[in-house]
Nucleic acid binder design. Structure first.
Lengths: 201, 201
DNA sequence: GGACCAGGTGGAACGTGTTCCTATCATGCT
DNA sequence: AGCATGATAGGAACACGTTCCACCTGGTCC
């Protein structure tokens, strides 16, 4: 295990360690939610999680790893709540739009958190590839599920390609929204247009 | 003019000032090209451009403004060279793909520079909206021109929407490539797929 | 020529991410 | 129990973006 990776839950032997990891991610979440990216200061996280700064860095080798890991945890819970439930809508396009809107509404409800996590995601480099990949898989899985909730057929390459493009648009829109370059409404409209272009019924 | 904006060429009265601005952007370019985002250190830029640190900050209020402005200059020159020349390809999709490939090849030829500029673009917040908007316009203009070089008809809303989606995919691909999460070939293939889905002949 | 002043210089200082070091603590082995 | 070993605490130190300040310069107006 190289030093450029975050410690995952499986790597952690003792209960105390798993607990520390959780405390750290909770503190990150809390701080991000209150004040966004800038408020997630490593010293503050360490203090709030009641661990030493060195320990924090032992668990997460950088602020970016920390935030992306927190993002990953978010996505996993979003994924499980979206994939297990029926998605309303008669066509793939409508279902995907529904999922995106629902997700966006969730994100817009906590702008600081969203800003922090999106920034981290965009700033991540190759050393965060594992964490990023996990997020990408969640995203694709959420979208392909929305496209065909019954999964009557196998997921095709085309489905994945479409999901990826939608994911790209979604990310760009998120970045534009987070950085104050477009409003929530513009973002929503743009995504809807994109989805309809990609998923003509 | 608020302090949160970069000084543009028009704001600069004297030749000496325009010259300083140019020296700064040249130095930025040079450093970015050699060592990427991290190598563009404000002290280093100031020294290379032979201006004081305070002066640098007077011209560009932050490292991000500086890099995004440098990116803007790049895009303008790309735009003028791509828009004035005939674009090969028989269909919109082929022409767009040609333009994207050409541009990508240019970017891949200078990975550090690309990394620096992409990072900056992704990290920019609302205070950089002007600079970002300029880049977005260049991008859209390049793509709509490739879609219909003769411009027999007006640019429609649909054209712009498609161009924006392609721009989004392009940006995401660029981020993935720059951060080492995908190879140049994967990036190219993904963009080609996206363009063909969006611009079915 | 002299006074004025916007813009420039040089550099100190501050905040925050990151690294590093030493002492302390917990846990398993003999 | 005594000990070895790895993890944690606590905190100093460093790097770089950013801010600030005291002073200087080169035009402009009288």
């Amino acid at each position: 295990m190289s030093a450029t990776n975050s410690l995952s839950t499986e790597d952690l032997g003792s209960t105390a360690q798993r607990d520390r990891r959780k405390r750290i991610l909770d503190a990150t979440y809390e701080l991000a939610s209150e004040g966004g990216f800038d408020a997630v200061q490593m010293r503050a996280v360490a203090e709030a999680a009641e661990v030493a700064l060195g320990t924090l860095y032992r668990y997460f080798p950088s602020k970016i790893h920390l935030l992306v890991s927190a993002l990953g945890r978010q996505f996993e819970s979003a994924e499980s709540s979206l994939v297990t439930r029926p998605v309303p809508g008669d066509t793939p396009a409508e279902r995907v739009i529904w999922v995106l809107k629902r997700t966006s509404r969730g994100l817009q409800g906590d702008p600081h958190l969203t800003e922090a996590l999106t920034r981290a995601f965009m700033f991540a480099d190759a050393s965060v590839a594992n964490e990023i990949h996990a997020v990408g898989m969640s995203m694709t899985s959420i979208l392909t599920h929305a496209m065909d909730p019954e999964r009557s057929t196998e997921v095709t390459e085309d489905d994945v390609a479409i999901a990826r493009v939608i994911g790209d648009v979604w990310l760009s829109a998120l970045v534009a929204w987070v950085t104050g370059r477009s409003t929530a409404a513009e973002t929503a409209a743009h995504m809807e247009t994109a989805v309809r272009m990609l998923l003509r019924d």
